[in-house]
Computed example of a mutant assay.
Amino acid sequence: MKACDNTSVGVVITDRQGRYLMFDRANFPAGTAPAAGHIDDHGSAEDAGRAEVEEELGLTVTGLTRVTGCWRDNRCRRRPGARGTGHDWTIYEATVTGDLTPSARETKNVRWIAPDALQELADRTVAYAQGRVTDAEFEAAPGIEPVWMQWLANIAAIHVSPDELLQVERLTR
């Protein structure tokens, strides 16, 4: 199994109606999220962001703006890297062009999500963190991928309390 490089990038894409381009992860971890992945051999975080959008959604990034990020102790499906379990995240908002051609290997249920529906998914993740949704229920009908709750809250795409974010954070470890 490949070692984690302890660096990750995520790319938030919105359309003119303010909807978010999201999908359900086809692989661990369960949840709905934007394009994301390890930086690995892509070079810079910007290069990795462009590559992940292309790999997962088939779209070409025409603009990237860094909006948030920091170290997070979130696990991934790789074995821990030199810095242990976790990732130094860089999150961008992007503009894109091209025809949406999602990767069947990495994505399921790719869709544009209105802000109110995104909040409903966030509420489902909070319910999951609080034990009101089982693992099986969350995998069958996921909310937001737990690591993404903080990033989406940081850019005011969702609204959750600090206590709820702490509860969700426990799911990422």
Rank of each mutant, 00 (worst) to 15 (best):
Ile155Gly: 10
Arg78Asn: 10
Pro29Cys: 11
Asn27Met: 10
Gly86Met: 08
Phe28Asn: 10
Leu21Met: 00
Thr125Met: 06
Thr68Asn: 11
Met22Ser: 05
Ile158Lys: 06
Met22Tyr: 12
Glu56Lys: 15
Asp135Ser: 03
Ala129Trp: 14
Thr62Leu: 01
Arg78Leu: 13
Asn74Pro: 07
Ser103Met: 07
Glu56His: 11
Cys4Trp: 04
Gly98Asn: 00
Gly43Asp: 06
Arg83Thr: 04
Val126Tyr: 01
Cys76Met: 06
Asn74Trp: 05
Gly37Met: 02
Pro146Thr: 07
Ser161Asp: 05
Ala3Phe: 04
Val160Cys: 11
Arg132Lys: 13
Ala129Lys: 09
Thr7Gln: 14
Thr101Asn: 14
His159Val: 09
Val53Asp: 05
Asn74Gln: 05
Gly31Arg: 01
Ala156Gln: 13
Leu59Gly: 05
Thr85Asn: 00
Glu93Gln: 15
Leu165Cys: 09
Asp41Ala: 12
Glu55Ile: 15
Arg66Tyr: 03
Ala51Gln: 08
Glu164Trp: 13
Pro102Leu: 10
Ile155Thr: 11
Leu57Ala: 06
His159Lys: 15
Thr101Gln: 14
Leu118His: 09
Arg72Gln: 15
Leu166Thr: 14
Ala82Asn: 00
Pro80Gly: 09
Thr95Gly: 14
Pro115Asp: 11
Ser103Tyr: 13
Ala48Trp: 02
Gln130Thr: 11
His87Glu: 10
Thr32Cys: 13
Cys4Phe: 03
Gln119Trp: 07
Phe23Pro: 02
Glu137Gln: 15
Val67Glu: 07
Asp73Leu: 07
Asp15Thr: 07
Gly10Arg: 01
Thr125Asn: 02
Gly63Ala: 14
His42Trp: 14
Ala48Cys: 04
Asp47Thr: 04
Val11Asp: 01
Ala35Ile: 09
Trp71Tyr: 11
Cys4His: 01
Leu121Cys: 06
Thr32Trp: 01
Trp112Val: 03
Ala48Lys: 07
Ala48Gln: 03
Ile158Arg: 00
Ala140Asn: 07
Tyr20Cys: 00
Ile155Gln: 10
Gly10Val: 01
Ile13Gln: 02
Asn109Ser: 14
Asp88Gly: 00
Ala140Lys: 09
Trp148Ile: 06
Asp135Gln: 08
Tyr128His: 13
Gly143His: 03
Arg50Gln: 13
Pro34Glu: 05
Pro29Asn: 11
Val9Gly: 09
Tyr128Arg: 14
Val9Cys: 11
Ile144Thr: 05
Trp71Arg: 08
Ala45His: 01
Cys76Val: 07
Arg124Asp: 03
Ala30Thr: 12
Thr60Pro: 03
Glu164Asp: 15
Val9Glu: 05
Ala140His: 04
Trp89Val: 00
Ala30Gly: 14
Val168Arg: 07
Arg75Tyr: 00
Asp40Val: 03
Phe23Thr: 01
Ala129His: 12
Pro102Arg: 10
Gly81Phe: 01
Ala129Cys: 08
Thr172Gly: 03
Val133Thr: 12
Leu165Asn: 07
Glu55Leu: 14
Thr60Glu: 15
Asp135Ala: 03
Thr134Met: 09
Glu145Ile: 02
Pro115Cys: 09
Ala94Lys: 02
Gly69Cys: 11
Pro162Cys: 05
Thr90Leu: 09
Phe138Ser: 12
Val133Arg: 03
Arg173Trp: 00
Ala33Glu: 12
Ile91Asp: 07
Leu166Cys: 04
Asn27Glu: 13
Lys108Arg: 15
Gln17Leu: 12
Ala157Lys: 06
